[in-house]
Amino acid sequence: MKSISIYTLLISFFVFIQCKKEDPKDPKANLPKDENVVMLTDTQLKNAPIETTMLSLQNISSVLKLNGMIDVPPQNLVSVSIPLGGYLKSSSLLPGMPISKGQVIAVIENPQFIQLQQDYLMAKSKSHFAELDYNRQKTLNQSQASSDKAMQQAQSELNNQRILMNSLAQQLRLININPEALKSGSITKSVPVYSTITGFVSKVNVNIGKYVNPSDVLFELINPDDIHLNLKVYEKDLENLKKGQRFVAYTNADPAKKYYGEIILISKDINQGGLAEVHCHFDKYDQSLVPGMYMNAEIETSTSFSNAIPEESIVNFEGKDFVFVETKKQTYRLTPVTLGETENGFVQILNFADFSNKKIVTKNAYTLLMKLKNTEEEE
Rank of each mutant, 00 (worst) to 15 (best):
S3Q: 04
S5N: 14
Y7H: 10
L9W: 12
I11N: 03
S12I: 08
K21M: 15
K28Y: 14
A29Q: 06
V37K: 11
V38D: 03
T43F: 06
T43A: 14
N47L: 13
A48N: 09
T52H: 03
T53P: 01
I60K: 04
L64A: 05
L64R: 03
V72T: 15
N76D: 14
L93E: 03
G96P: 00
G96Y: 11
M97A: 14
G102E: 10
E109P: 06
F113W: 04
L116V: 00
L121G: 04
H128C: 14
L132E: 14
D133P: 02
Q137S: 01
T139Q: 02
Q142V: 07
S143E: 04
Q144K: 08
S146D: 05
S146I: 00
S146A: 13
K149S: 02
A150V: 15
A154P: 07
Q155P: 06
L158M: 12
L158K: 14
Q171Y: 07
I175R: 02
N178F: 01
N178Y: 04
K183F: 11
T188Q: 15
T188F: 10
V191I: 12
I222T: 10
D225L: 14
K236W: 00
L241F: 06
K243M: 14
V248S: 01
T251Y: 04
D254Y: 14
A256C: 02
I266S: 08
A276G: 13
F282Y: 12
D283L: 07
L289A: 10
Y294V: 00
E318Q: 09
E318L: 07
K328E: 10
R333W: 00
L334W: 06
F346I: 08
N351L: 05
A353V: 13
E379C: 12
